[in-house]
C-alpha cells in the first residue's frame, strides 16, 4: 500500500469511526441508566437523516438550518419513543422492555418503508463535504475531514454536559443507583427523557453526516451502522461514555483497514465486525474500559 492510499484509508476509517462513536453513545447512555438495549436507536439515526433530507430537498431550507432542525426534531422523537413505549414497561420484567424495543425498531423501519418507500433517495450534501482536500501526498474528500471534526466537537459538548452540568450530574447519579436518586428528590423520569433526547440528537447528527458520507438514504439504512455502533459500545465497555468513543473509532478503523489490507475480504466486511464482537465477549466481556460486573442480590 502506498502512503497516499494509507492516509486516505486512515482518514476514511477515522471518519467512519467517529460516526460509530456518535451512535454508540446513545446506546451506552441508555444502557447505563436503564440496562436496556435500545434497538430503536439505529432507526432514530435513520429518522434524523430523513428529516434533514426533507428540510433540504422539499422545503429548500439552508443546509445548516435544516441540520439543526433535524437534530432537534429527532431528539423530540427520541423523547416520544421513551414516553410512549418504554416508560409503560419500565417496571416490567427486563425481557418485556427488550421486546418492546425490538417492536419500536421494527415499527420505525416499516413505517419508513410504507410512508417514504423503499427506494433509496439521493441526499444533497453541502459543497464543503464533497470538496477534495490535499493532505501531504494524498487527496482526501472533505467529508473525511469535516465529519471527525464535527463529531469531536459534539463529543466534547456531550462530555461537558455529562460532567459539568446539573442534568449531567443527575444522569450519572441515576446510572449509579436509580432508587437512591429518586429518594434524593430527582425527577428520574425526566432525567431519562433528557438522556433519550441527547442520545437521539447525537444519533441524528450521526445520521446526517452518514448521509453526507454515503449520500443515499433508505428506511433500513440504520440497521448496520446501529449494530456496529452497539458492538463499539460493548467493545468499549457498555455504560461507559469514553469507552463508547474509543470503541467507535476502533471499530471504524478495523472495518476500513481489514478491507484495505485484504481486499479479498470485502464481501465479509460486516461479518468481521460481528466476529470481533463474539471474540470480545469471549476474552474481555466487560470491554476495554468496563468495570467487572458487580452483583446485587
Amino acid at each position: 500500500m502506498t502512503l497516499e492510499t494509507l492516509i486516505q484509508q486512515l482518514m476514511n476509517g477515522i471518519s467512519l469511526g467517529s460516526l460509530y462513536a456518535l451512535i454508540a453513545i446513545g446506546y451506552t447512555m441508555v444502557y447505563g441508566i436503564l440496562r436496556l438495549i435500545n434497538f430503536a436507536h439505529s432507526d432514530i439515526f435513520m429518522v434524523g437523516a430523513y428529516f434533514a433530507f426533507f428540510f433540504v430537498a422539499v422545503f429548500h431550507l439552508p443546509w445548516a438550518v435544516s441540520a439543526i432542525l433535524a437534530v432537534v426534531l429527532t431528539a423530540a422523537v427520541g423523547m416520544i419513543v421513551d414516553r410512549a413505549a418504554y416508560r409503560p414497561v419500565r417496571n416490567a420484567p427486563r425481557i418485556s422492555a427488550l421486546i418492546t424495543a425490538v417492536g419500536v425498531s421494527f415499527f420505525l423501519e416499516n413505517l419508513g418503508l410504507v410512508t417514504v418507500g423503499a427506494r433509496p433517495k439521493a441526499f444533497q450534501r453541502p459543497d464543503v463535504m464533497s470538496k477534495v482536500v490535499p493532505i501531504g501526498p494524498a487527496a482526501v474528500s472533505g467529508v473525511s475531514i469535516w465529519v471527525p471534526i464535527l463529531s469531536l466537537a459534539l463529543l466534547a459538548l456531550l462530555l461537558f454536559i455529562v460532567h459539568r452540568t446539573k442534568v449531567g450530574m443527575a444522569m450519572r447519579s441515576v446510572s449509579t443507583d436509580i432508587e437512591t436518586t429518586r429518594l434524593m428528590g430527582v425527577d428520574v423520569d425526566r432525567v431519562i427523557s433528557y438522556t433519550f433526547a441527547i442520545g437521539s440528537a447525537l444519533a441524528a447528527a450521526g445520521g446526517i453526516m452518514w448521509a453526507c458520507k454515503y449520500p443515499q438514504i433508505n428506511p433500513l439504512m440504520g440497521i448496520y451502522p446501529g449494530w456496529k455502533a452497539f458492538t463499539a459500545a460493548v467493545v468499549g465497555g457498555i455504560g461507559n461514555i469514553t469507552g463508547a468513543m474509543i470503541g467507535g473509532f476502533l471499530i471504524g478503523l478495523v472495518e476500513i483497514m481489514t478491507v484495505a489490507v485484504l481486499p479479498g475480504l470485502s464481501g465479509y466486511r460486516d461479518g468481521i465486525i460481528f466476529t470481533l464482537l463474539l471474540v470480545f465477549l469471549l476474552i474481555r466481556p466487560t470491554g476495554i474500559l468496563g468495570e467487572p460486573l458487580k452483583e446485587k442480590v
Binding site: 427488550l98 465479509y268 461479518g271 460481528f274 465477549l281
Partner: peptide, 24 residues
Amino acid sequence: PSFRLRGDYLAIATFGFGEIIFVL
C-alpha cells in the same frame, strides 16, 4: 461465549450470529 456472562449479551451475540450467517 454469551452464557459465560450475565445480562443481555445473548441478544447481541445471537443477532451478530444471524448476520454472520447472512454474510457467509
